[in-house]
Design a protein around this nucleic acid. Structure first.
Ligand SMILES: [Mn+2]
Ligand SMILES: [Mn+2]
Ligand SMILES: [Mn+2]
Ligand SMILES: [Mn+2]
Lengths: 224, 224
DNA sequence: AGATGATTTTAGACAAGTCTAAACCTGTTT
DNA sequence: AAACAGGTTTAGACTTGTCTAAAATCATCT
């Protein structure tokens, strides 16, 4: 009854529900899942019903999908594997942070608990992946960092870049070009009312960030 | 027309045809493939016809399957990936040589040329996998070692264990127990006519090997 | 050559996962 | 309350890879 092996598709659905749920307690809509999984709403309905059958999520017609405790645990394990593999690809194989995601999408489905435990040890028990996202421990516990997007910072505030809200290749490459890598210390010089753009200062540069960009950079602000 | 992505199943069939072909130029029989792939003959017929359609192997009814150059190249790439992953699991993650195969069976299907090139570099361009099997280079070239099974050695001959013909967990664990790991130097003391068993000597021990065991240990014999 | 037995292929079916098109809810507007 | 527009589900179909059972072929032995 417990611990049925999941197919790759099932794992992808659970991960999608998990990531679209965010902090909220609300069900994830069929169409949001369809968009995320690049599939059709009808396919989502089918799969969601199947996963509900397996007690991995709660589902009532027209009310969207919500993970059960078991479903959430499964989803977190996949996230854990994904992020550990990303660390491996980046730290050990030298892939850039914008190149790791697609390969990790494949690697996250490899079935072996022992493999992941050993990989984690080999990597030195990393706490964060190359995009600054926390790596769940073997029991699924996640210690989140409190951080805020640059877009919410006020002039004069300082902090260190600890993550991104958009892991797309184009965004990550843009950050590389601007030398805004994880760990970079920045301070906000000015926020322009006109278009919500933000001027920031690093050790080397002054850069103006569009609102869209500033929303997607997460900063750990000095305790104030 | 070239370079269609292969499914996991197709890859497994190609690899099975490759490994069952050995050196011979003959077609591999449907039933041998079925046994190897733990499936039914009728399933093999279906898949073999599909792969022939894709020009990955030659197939004539009742005549078995033979790899085309394209099919052989594809098969070798999978073998290459399998063996590189085995090295990673053994050398970097510390898995025993009898534990690596099953996980490598999964990892060999990950799709990324770049990943394998980087993995190979990270591993220091190993020439052999943990079972002594040669690792094809990126272009599919394989440099085989000339070796003979212990069962063909005559009394007085010496050599170094370089590989095994059976990678089953039980066989590998047996070798571990007897301290017959790759690189061990052995000499043949006596061959018993009665049951073809072989008495060998290592630096530390004298051990008698059954014919079955002696067939499955490959030795590189001193140039004589 | 004819019969026998093993191997192989075909026919028909099924499960998983997906799709399109049609039917169905639901929330909001008239 | 009825109509409309979105979003959702259902119905029916298709593909891939597999299976069982039946038919076909091959190899071998009288
Ligand atoms: Mn990722
Ligand atoms: Mn990540
Ligand atoms: Mn292997
Ligand atoms: Mn091997």
């Amino acid at each position: 009854m417990t611990e049925q092996p999941l197919t790759r598709s099932e794992e992808n659905y659970l991960k999608a529900v998990y990531s679209l749920s965010g902090n909220t307690d609300k069900g994830v809509s069929t169409s949001d899942l369809a968009t995320r999984l690049e599939t059709k709403a009808s396919s989502v309905t089918d799969m969601v019903q199947k996963l509900a059958e397996k007690n991995l999520l709660h589902y009532r017609k027209y009310q969207g999908a919500k993970l059960t405790p078991g479903g959430k645990a499964a989803a977190i394990q996949i996230v854990r594997k994904h992020r550990l593999w990303e660390v491996f690809l980046h730290e050990k194989l030298g892939f850039a942070w914008d190149e790791v995601h697609d390969i990790a999408e494949q690697l996250e489905h490899i079935k072996s608990e022992e493999l992941i435990l050993r990989l984690e040890r080999f990597l030195g028990h990393p706490k964060y992946d190359p995009h600054g996202d926390p790596i769940p421990d073997p029991d699924g516990r996640i210690q989140a960092r409190r951080s805020m997007p640059v877009s919410e910072m006020k002039p004069g505030m300082e902090g260190v870049i600890t993550g991104v809200r958009d892991s797309s290749s184009s965004f990550l490459q843009y950050l590389d070009k601007q030398q805004l890598v994880l760990g970079t210390r920045i301070s906000v010089v000015e926020v322009f009312d006109y278009d919500q753009s933000v001027q920031i200062e690093t050790a080397d540069n002054r850069i103006t960030l569009s609102f869209d960009v500033s929303k997607n950079i997460k900063v750990q602000v000095e305790n104030g």
